[in-house]
Computed example of a mutant assay.
Amino acid sequence: MQNLEDDRRRAERFPLSIDLKFLLQGRHEATGMLLDISETGLALLSETQAEEGDDIVVYPIGLGRLAGKVVRAFDGGIGVQFALAKGQREIIRERLAAVLGGVPYMRLSEKRTSFRIRYNIDTHARIEGQDKTIACTIKDMSKTGCLLKADSQPPIGAEVTLGTLRGRVVRHIENGFAMEFHSAAAQAGAPLPPRQHTA
């Protein structure tokens, strides 16, 4: 069990906004959006509720069938731990590497130079130092950040937790704010993948 926990901590998580379908307990079909993914698990946003321990099969566009267990249910989403063989994990690792290297395995948004995927998903953001969460709506999301519609605006630079993603407020917009994600690679002190330039 300890080795599994160590693997989960070492696995780098990447923010990816991809449409998906999933199956709960082998019978409840639902849709959602991928929030982030590693070779050991993922987080997704969905209005469908799940409970810890539920069997789940997720089908993100471009990644095929990913089976696992619900390990966490947060407001507006689900955390999943994969139950995959070593060979299947290696395939996920290769596909993630391909995306970050610029190979179009999946739609991966690039900051400003590429499209941001538009959504209209209600969720809650937790602001560091505040007891209450902020009700907000994800308007669009990219690899590096998202735009949130909200009644209140945290200060510029405030630390924000959105599901399993952490980041900071970088600007205010009318009726909301923009959040920039903290890169898992940057937090670990590793170099970030090279930025891909569009024509």
Rank of each mutant, 00 (worst) to 15 (best):
A188G: 10
L20H: 08
G129L: 00
R9V: 08
D36M: 03
A98T: 11
V170Y: 08
N175I: 07
S183T: 14
L165K: 00
A186P: 14
V103I: 15
M141D: 08
P60G: 05
N3K: 15
M106E: 10
G62V: 00
L84P: 15
G32T: 05
G68C: 06
Q196F: 08
A184L: 04
G79L: 00
K21A: 08
N3T: 14
E5Q: 11
P104V: 06
S46R: 00
L148K: 06
F14H: 14
G64E: 09
L16I: 14
H28S: 09
C136L: 07
L108E: 06
G145D: 10
G129Q: 04
T198A: 07
A178S: 14
D140Q: 09
V170A: 10
A11E: 08
A188W: 08
T161R: 14
I138Y: 04
V70A: 06
G26C: 04
F74V: 03
L100H: 12
H28F: 09
F14S: 09
G26R: 08
V58G: 02
Q25S: 15
G76E: 05
A150V: 13
I92V: 15
P194M: 01
R89N: 07
H197V: 13
D140A: 02
L4T: 15
H182N: 06
K86N: 14
S17K: 01
L100P: 15
A11H: 09
K132L: 01
F74N: 02
R13W: 04
G189F: 02
L84Y: 07
K139G: 13
V71P: 06
Q81N: 10
K149L: 05
K132W: 00
V170H: 10
C136T: 02
L108A: 12
D36H: 07
D36Y: 03
P194A: 01
L45P: 02
G41I: 01
A125N: 03
D122T: 00
V70I: 09
F115P: 12
L147E: 02
L66F: 03
A30T: 08
A83D: 14
M33Y: 10
I134N: 02
D122N: 04
E5R: 13
C136R: 00
G129P: 06
E5K: 13
D54P: 11
D151Y: 02
T133C: 00
P104K: 11
Q187H: 09
G68A: 06
G129F: 01
R65V: 11
P155G: 06
D75I: 00
M179S: 05
M179P: 15
V103K: 15
P155Q: 07
L16R: 05
G26L: 03
M141I: 15
E90T: 11
I117C: 04
A158D: 09
S114D: 14
D19P: 15
N3I: 08
P60I: 01
P60Q: 03
Q196N: 05
E110T: 14
L42E: 07
V70L: 06
Q130E: 13
T198F: 06
T144R: 05
G76L: 02
Q196D: 04
Y105W: 09
N120G: 12
G101S: 09
M179Q: 03
G163P: 12
A185H: 11
Q88K: 10
R8A: 07
S46E: 01
I127P: 14
R126S: 06
N3P: 13
T123K: 01
G145R: 05
I18K: 02
L108V: 13
R93Q: 13
R195E: 11
V99H: 04
E39R: 11
E174P: 12
Q88S: 14
T137D: 04
